[in-house]
Design a protein around this nucleic acid. Structure first.
Length: 317
RNA sequence: GGCGACGUGGCCAAGUGGUAAGGCAGGGGCCUGCAAAGCCCUUAUCCCCGGUUCGAAUCCGGGCGUCGCCU
């Protein structure tokens, strides 16, 4: 494993909860290292979602080249598999030009999909999905029982109320005739990179205050108009892209669910919960796999670069 | 000052004698192709003191507090 690991290329990865300051850290690091940023953000991939995703603006993108931003139409559905594939290509491309790729973003599931790979299984199948979801709506227990029969292992591990995963398990079985738990076992893929992972650390209260301020700013900057434009341009209300925080709440406001102040408050709350889940995810990383650094406004870029230079050549991370 | 109502976890709130529902907020966790998604778990000396009772959040007395009305 060691010889295999050490032959892998080191990859600088910046993760962290929303509004923690990943972007600034990434930009400063890119400039210091002559690098380019590969965004790991499940919603910044969609064109037209600018304000609510806090997408780096033209100025930032002129300073440093960003990849995996604006690569999908808001009517499309971009998946973790798409991300892992495209990010891998972008990283290779950056390296081929003698530059340093920096993976930065808060979609930690995407980051893992890139670093460890997803198990080789077919992507979602719209037809099968639709049928299974309809069946679930009629009677969830039927599907749960079906899964217990064809794949007791998976049924034991997936909560019977978790429609998303029950349906996915049945879908994979139907497409491959192999239980999803078999895929789980076989899929221990060897890492594709030797990641050096850092995250900006902030006290929770400070993080939440930043989230609130950012959401206020989004609404002042025209988030509602942006949602309107998307709708006018033909993006259906149930488009996956509109499930993003902020967009979803504005959509609900447009449908009369609540007034503007409530919408803003709910958007803040959804963002805080996201941050909480992101922190949980980071905590669950292997001990020592992640280095916390100060945010860029407190000199964190220096420590980030130090961590990078210290570990890029070693095999400890 | 008088009369009345009310006082249950951070907030809302059910419970009128048998040992504290629920919702929200918060916290913790899970996560293999929807991931900014989805799912799970979780918080109480019932304002205080005394009394009645086998037993009180529930009844009685007093105190404190809040609100309303009156003077």
């Amino acid at each position: 494993m060691d010889s295999e690991t050490s032959s892998l290329q080191p990859l600088l990865v910046i993760v962290g909860p929303t509004a923690s300051g990943k972007t600034r850290l990434a930009i400063e690091a890119s400039e210091a290292l002559a690098g380019e940023i590969v965004s790991a953000d499940a919603f910044a991939v969609y064109r037209g979602l600018d304000i609510g995703t806090d997408k780096p603006g033209v100025e930032a993108r002129r300073r440093v080249r960003h990849h995996l931003i604006d690569v999908a139409a808001p009517t499309e559905r971009f998946s973790a598999g798409d991300f892992a594939r495209d990010a891998g290509v972008a990283i290779a491309d950056i390296r081929s030009r003698g530059l340093i790729p920096i993976l930065a973003g808060g979609s930690h599931f995407y980051v893992r999909a890139l670093l460890l790979g997803l198990f080789p299984s077919p992507p979602r199948d719209a037809k099968i999905r639709a049928r299974l979801v309809a069946a679930w709506r009629r009677d969830p227990t039927t599907l749960v029982r079906a899964l217990q029969e064809i794949d007791p292992g998976a049924a034991a591990r997936i909560d019977p109320r978790d429609r998303q995963r029950i349906v996915r398990a049945l879908e994979v079985h139907e497409l491959t005739s192999v239980p999803i738990s078999e895929h789980w076992k076989r899929s221990r893929q060897s890492p594709r990179y030797r990641p050096v992972i850092v995250a900006p650390e902030r006290p929770r209260e400070e993080l939440y205050a930043r989230i609130d301020a950012r959401v206020d700013h989004m609404f002042r900057s025209g988030l509602e108009e942006e949602v309107n434009q998307l709708l006018v341009s033909g993006v259906p209300r149930d488009a996956h892209a509109l499930k993003a925080i902020g967009y979803r709440q504005v959509l609900e406001m447009l449908q009369g669910s609540w007034d503007r102040p409530t919408t803003i408050a709910r958007t803040k709350q959804a963002s805080r919960r996201l941050a909480k889940r992101q922190l949980t995810w980071l905590r669950s990383l292997r001990e020592g796999a992640l280095r916390w650094v100060q945010p860029a406004d407190r000199g964190g870029t220096e420590s980030l670069l130090a961590v990078w230079h210290q570990h890029r050549g070693s095999r400890s991370l």
